[in-house]
């Protein structure tokens, strides 16, 4: 019974998320960004500014560690270093850059969205918006959604470049692999870029919706804001992992040769 209730709850949470997503698209279609241009630009700046150092450090470190560990294994099994660079680039473009950046953005930006909206709920600001004929989805969710979507794509592209450059530096400085060997891009196709781009867009849609939903459903006082923030990070990260699985399968069957 407990499991059944839990599944029902999850299903209704998913339905509410889809309802919020469709309302957000509806308000965007009705010119929400035109009316909330200032808020949108502020969010764009805030999300990018707030995440750029975090993304640089995490993806740069990940790139360095990945290349280092792979080169140790390659050195043991077959000392043929020329395959490492192209394989690393391909994996970054298809998989790791969007997914790791997505998880980082879910943590950094998702928590921010949930905390902001959640604290507005508990201080009755969301009710005050409703009393002034301002729809919270139009006023709060749509600008954050659009800003997060754009920044997820931009930050992922930036993070991917940082990661690849960091990996290339380790390969050259520690293992002596020439840059022209490591950065060989001839086996990366448009399909690989498309697969990575689709993931960025999917995460950019899922993260703000999961976070805004958690924020709007905040109950209680400051404790409720904490719970909502945790829920936002968990749900957004979960969405990233599930979407990665689905889109990787889709790309494997329909995009890659």
């Amino acid at each position: 019974m407990g499991l059944l209730l839990s599944r029902q709850h999850q299903r209704s949470a998913l339905l509410r998320a889809f309802a919020l997503l469709s309302q957000t698209f509806l308000w965007l279609g009705r010119g929400s960004l035109r009316r909330r241009r200032q808020q949108f630009i502020e969010q764009l700046f805030e999300m990018g500014n707030r995440s750029v150092l975090f993304i640089t450090v995490t993806l740069g470190t990940l790139g360095m560690i990945s290349v280092f560990q792979v080169l140790i294994q390659v050195d043991r099994i077959l000392p043929e270093y020329s395959v490492v660079g192209p394989a690393f680039l391909l994996t970054m473009v298809r998989e790791f850059a969007p997914t790791i950046a997505g998880l980082m953005i879910a943590t950094r930006v998702g928590s921010g969205i949930a905390a902001e909206i959640g604290s507005m709920v508990v201080t009755e600001q969301v009710d005050a918006l409703r009393m002034c004929n301002a729809e919270p989805v139009d006023y709060l969710v749509a600008p954050r959604f659009a800003a997060c979507l754009i920044q997820t794509v931009l930050l992922t592209m930036y993070g991917g470049v940082v990661s690849v450059v960091a990996g290339g530096l380790v390969a050259n400085l520690v293992w002596g692999i020439p840059y022209e060997v490591f950065f060989r891009v001839d086996n990366i196709t448009y399909s690989d870029f498309l697969a990575g781009f689709l993931k960025c867009v999917a995460y950019g849609i899922a993260i703000p919706i999961a976070a805004a939903q958690a924020g709007l459903e905040t109950e209680g006082g400051s404790e409720g804001v904490g719970t909502a923030t945790t829920r936002a990070v968990v749900n957004a990260s979960f969405c990233v992992v599930v979407l990665d699985f689905i889109l990787s399968g889709f790309a494997f069957f329909f995009l890659f040769d």
Binding site: M120, E124, A128
Partner: peptide, 11 residues
């Protein structure tokens, strides 16, 4: 028009 208990001023 509504005056909220917690002010509800937009911060």
């Amino acid at each position: 028009g509504m005056l909220f208990q917690n002010y509800a001023l937009f911060d």
